[in-house]
Simulated scan of single mutants.
Amino acid sequence: MTRASNGLRPAVFLDRDGVLNHVVWRDGKPASPRAVDELEIEADAPQALAALKAAGYLLLVVTNQPDVRRGLMAAEVLDAIHARLAAALPVDDIVACVHDNADDCACRKPKPGMILELAERHGVDLSRSWMIGDQDRDVACGQAAGCATILLKKFYNSGANSVPELGSRAVVETLLQAVLAIVEQPTIATAP
């Protein structure tokens, strides 16, 4: 897949925790790694991202990381985690929202600010792009930006069994299954 006649490229926007790396369990709840040594890449992520790269997609990570704002992790540690992620996977860019809900920013998912920022920066055609996430807010973010969406089915996501309600193109078990759906149907329009 190459640039369209409008000069823009398709991209796959990826949530980080629960998609590219394992979540960390704290107090019985899924959470983000707060240290570099807590980052554990999902087993199928290298193969999945290599397939997307081969199909011509830009790979852009969009992640909510409120632990920085909450004082539970330093910004420098977040940068180090992202450096390790970028060294392990062929991603083109990573953007993190470090705000908390009360900040009411434009970048915290489900708002589409991070996707829109990356689309502008990298010349992305959002109508030919996808968002893959493990939470309802990832689907809502992708839809708000004009992308098709795929939800990874995780038991901690209450909406993972309700594709019609979320409007996601598919609910799949793994990142590799999501990638296969994208590569097999790259020209799907984003409208439901």
Rank of each mutant, 00 (worst) to 15 (best):
V36L: 01
D93N: 00
A55S: 14
I81K: 04
P186A: 14
L8H: 10
V24F: 03
F13P: 01
A51H: 05
R26D: 01
V139S: 07
V91R: 04
V95D: 06
M1P: 04
C141Y: 01
V19E: 01
P30N: 06
D103Y: 00
A55R: 13
R108V: 05
C147G: 07
A74L: 14
A86C: 00
P10N: 07
V36E: 01
E117Q: 15
I41Y: 02
P164H: 07
A178Y: 13
F155C: 13
D136V: 09
L39I: 04
D93F: 00
E42R: 11
L14E: 06
I115F: 07
R84E: 08
G18V: 05
D17Q: 10
V172R: 11
S158Q: 15
L39T: 05
D136Y: 09
R34H: 10
G28M: 08
F155L: 15
H82F: 01
L151Y: 08
N64D: 09
D134E: 06
E165H: 12
L151A: 08
D67M: 08
D67S: 10
N64L: 05
Q65M: 07
A80R: 12
T190L: 14
A87G: 03
D136H: 08
L166D: 00
S5P: 09
L60G: 10
A119T: 12
L116I: 07
D103H: 02
L116M: 10
L175A: 13
P192L: 15
S129P: 02
T174M: 07
S162E: 12
A191E: 08
L39R: 07
T2M: 15
V62I: 13
L151S: 08
V124T: 10
A170R: 11
V95H: 10
H99P: 04
N161R: 15
